[in-house]
Design a protein around this nucleic acid. Sequence first.
DNA 1: CGTCTTTTTGACCATTTTCAATCAGTGTGG
DNA 2: CCACACTGATTGAAAATGGTCAAAAAGACG
Lengths: 255, 255
Amino acid sequence: MTTNGEITNGPGLRARDCTHCPLRKIPAFREFCDEELDFVSRFKRGELTVAPGATVLTEGSNSPHLYTVLEGWGFRYKTLEDGSRQILNYVMPGDLVGLQSAVMNEMQHSVEALKPMTLCVFDRRELFDLYRSHPGLAFDVTWLAAREEQMLDENILSLGRRSARQRAAYLLCFLNDRRLQCGLSLGRDGALPLTQQHVADTLGFSLVHTNKTLKKLATDQLVKWTEDGCVILEPEKLADLADWQGLGDTPRPFI
Amino acid sequence: MTTNGEITNGPGLRARDCTHCPLRKIPAFREFCDEELDFVSRFKRGELTVAPGATVLTEGSNSPHLYTVLEGWGFRYKTLEDGSRQILNYVMPGDLVGLQSAVMNEMQHSVEALKPMTLCVFDRRELFDLYRSHPGLAFDVTWLAAREEQMLDENILSLGRRSARQRAAYLLCFLNDRRLQCGLSLGRDGALPLTQQHVADTLGFSLVHTNKTLKKLATDQLVKWTEDGCVILEPEKLADLADWQGLGDTPRPFI
DNA sequence: CGTCTTTTTGACCATTTTCAATCAGTGTGG
DNA sequence: CCACACTGATTGAAAATGGTCAAAAAGACG
């Protein structure tokens, strides 16, 4: 459950070249100029692969690395003394992981993989070089931080003001929209590979109450629960139910 | 209630020179080098003063400005279709306001003043110049964004996993610590000038339940409610109750 | 076939909301 | 000075929402 992944950068397991980065093909992401691409390639130290359920980063640690998600997905969470876990947000391809520890001193949350993840590894000590030599990329890092802030704001609105049904609806179509945007491959039927425990830990509800809420959404044919996780049947109706506007469609940067 | 403030930059109402910025005297803030100070001085367009209850920025708007809080305090919030309001976080001296609209396209939340506020006004179109010419300051902007993210994470943990009593305790000592750190002047007895409605809108509770929760904290001599707002009597006991570690003490940047 | 994880259900209890007043303090106009 | 309106704090009672406990069902897997 808590085994860390492995950084591959040997001659045999050569990390992918940024020129052929699969994210560059996805329309939602903005293009690099050649020079930037070149810099990021040199900035990249290797790749980290993490198995489902394994920890990418731990609260309280002081990682020397900064990551970008290349494949797979995971979640950020915090735990309270009594052991209860709160999921803060999910991370998907193109998202930065570990910016807090890179900019400030230490991680205040943990990150765990939901599906097999591949992350590009950067050395956090070189982040300042990036700021010095590539203001455009530095701006992009800030852009990503501002976007994360926006998502957290929306999550707080949800936790504070939406009913159980609305909250679940919001979460599911939010995740669905995000995974569509970043071209994330999912389970067989396009299911979000979550357990109801994950949903409960995100929404701030007990597992039992979460189950009853999801069951109602399933009875109303808005979602379906399969072995692979949650299948979204009616994204528009869910968005409507939750009073949610959807993600913006401005092309987003990534590093 | 929704009247905007006024930007003062005439010869009579000359905006303060950054050299004499009162924030520079506060130990929690990091020092500028001369050249940075010089740049920020030129970057600054003027000052905005806002009366309590007035709106600084509105959700959905596309402000041409980016601000730093110089004096006073306010809060960021979002509203749902049904009119319910969720306070996302509070802004105090040294905090950036409007970064989202400066970096992305439009504000996804509103900002309102709690006490008379003064904000330094910057032109958001020049933010990229800052990134180009002053990587150190650019890094500081990212630092501030990461710090906001950290605060939001903690707030989400609170909303999702803390009991009413813990949540209230957390909020009050969080605000108390922040105002001490940034040297914010408060009401007569050092009261946080909040109404219970503000607390309710932050914690995600109804006003009635918030009142009952706060009343119990008052009965236990942990806080006191006065005409000026909330006086914190036992910050340590509150932090203990909420299982909260306090703010870090690394010197923080500001622009 | 047993073991494990995850979903599902029912019964009962605790928390929180809503509704409906009341109370206390402030400020205003007469 | 007092009546009046207004804002914010306080209270009680009923109703709704969500949590806890305990157990069963349903798949997944070796």
